[in-house]
């Protein structure tokens, strides 16, 4: 089964219609400016489990949506 993401405007649509948007999430313990910038630019939590994500529905409404997803299932 293909992963479906639920678009608030268009309804559930397969992941192929979407473009994933990485949201930088530097951890709180990084306080020094340069370190935070490197983290924002390159590093990712790559969460295993439930995560709030940003997706662009390129094949439908062409708007950014906020979607909660479990990366161990989807």
């Amino acid at each position: 089964m293909v992963l479906r993401l639920d678009c608030p405007h268009c309804g559930p649509r397969p992941a192929d219609e979407w473009v994933y948007g990485e949201v930088p999430d530097p951890p709180d313990y990084l306080t020094e400016g340069d370190e935070r910038d490197v983290d924002r630019g390159f590093m990712m939590s790559n969460t295993e489990g439930v995560k709030v994500e940003r997706w662009f529905h390129a094949g439908g409404c062409r708007r950014w949506q906020t979607i909660t997803r479990d990366t161990t299932i989807g």
Binding site: M1, V2, L3, A15, D16, V19, T72
Partner: peptide, 14 residues
């Protein structure tokens, strides 16, 4: 690769 970041071994018709 599949569009979505994921740890799933699920395969798809797409």
């Amino acid at each position: 690769i599949d569009n979505q970041p994921s740890y799933s071994y699920r395969s798809s018709y797409e």
